[in-house]
């Protein structure tokens, strides 16, 4: 009763003109960590398949394919998330403070592709490091 009486009849909008996202590099980091974990698992399942030569390999093969699929998806997610930060979040003033940003993003995206093409623990570690660098730049820009 009181609530209805006191409720404002007018609305004052404090919206944005376009749908805005709250940006966060953690999704890219988790995806990069997942890629590294899948590389470990793929190598492990491959060993299982080799060891099971002559017996049933069906479960190990199933797990191998699943791990490859997850690696593929998460490497793509890394690219997607990094490119969103690059295209939508980072501004010219961020680039002025971090002049290596374009190059870092470019290399990170290429590393994500390399991780799709290969099963390479070193490349997965490099991808994690590249995403961390971008994440560090992101959080640096958040310091007022």
């Amino acid at each position: 009763m009181f609530k209805r009486l006191l409720a404002p009849r007018l609305v004052a909008r404090a919206h944005c003109d376009v749908p805005c996202g709250i940006y966060d590099p953690s999704t890219a980091k988790i995806a990069a960590d997942t890629v590294a974990k899948m590389v470990e698992k793929i190598v492990g399942f491959e060993k299982e398949i080799t060891a099971a030569a002559g017996g049933s390999q069906v479960n190990a093969r199933n797990n191998l394919v699943r791990s490859i699929q997850v690696k593929e998806e998460h490497a793509e997610r890394v690219k997607h998330e990094i490119l969103i930060l690059w295209g939508d979040y980072f501004k010219p003033e961020h680039l002025a403070k971090h002049p290596t940003l374009h190059d870092t993003v470019w290399k990170a995206v290429k590393l994500a592709s390399k991780n799709k093409q290969n099963v390479d623990a070193a490349a997965a570690t490099e991808l994690q490091a590249a995403v961390k660098t971008i994440s560090d730049i992101f959080w640096d820009t958040k310091k007022a």
Partner: peptide, 18 residues
């Protein structure tokens, strides 16, 4: 009286403030 809608005026005003 107004109802604030949206988050662009945080922290002074929040979505849903009367």
């Amino acid at each position: 009286r107004v109802l604030v809608q949206g988050r662009s005026m945080e922290p002074a005003l929040r979505d849903g403030d009367w």
